[in-house]
């Protein structure tokens, strides 16, 4: 089985990977935290806006509990989502303001469950085996 390797910043405190997302106005790259504890992949409203999406394109409004209360987000189906060498078409993400000013989002389990992956922390890289068709 061919493995795809993605490196991450050895000085960082989080595993931050490059993500690329396509929308109606083009594509955008951003840095996303790989988060095996998050159910859903999340992007910020600003990144969604850069792609040409807004809340009007959402499939469903959401409510999110945060440290300061409850806030609104929405679930969006983006045209294409690319991370860890894997391309998924019509991928669903949660759009929500994460409240921190240094990342564009989180890669959660609704993306990661399509892969077998190995986080090689001491080597600062993630190895991926694709187990689903790239366009699934």
């Amino acid at each position: 089985m061919k493995r795809f390797a993605t490196s991450f910043d050895p000085d960082g405190e989080l595993i931050v990977i490059e993500g690329r997302i396509a929308g109606p106005r083009g594509s955008s790259g951003g840095r996303l935290v790989l988060d095996t504890g998050a159910a859903m992949t999340t992007i910020t409203p600003e990144l969604a806006e850069l792609l040409g999406y807004s809340a009007r394109d959402g499939l469903r409004r959401t409510r999110v509990h945060t440290a300061v209360g409850s806030e609104e987000g929405y679930v969006l189906e983006v045209a294409e989502f690319v991370a860890l060498g894997t391309v998924l078409q019509r991928f669903r993400v949660h759009v929500f303001d994460l409240g921190h000013d240094d990342i564009d989002g989180l890669v959660g389990l609704n993306f990661l469950r399509r892969l077998n992956y190995e986080i090689r922390s001491a080597e600062y890289r993630v190895l991926v085996e694709r187990v689903a068709p790239a366009t699934a």
Binding site: A39, L50, D102, L106
Partner: peptide, 16 residues
């Protein structure tokens, strides 16, 4: 779309 500083703080995971 990138931040030029270091990503140092664990973001609060939203509880969807």
């Amino acid at each position: 779309h990138y931040f030029t500083g270091r990503v140092t703080v664990r973001p609060p995971r939203p509880s969807l």
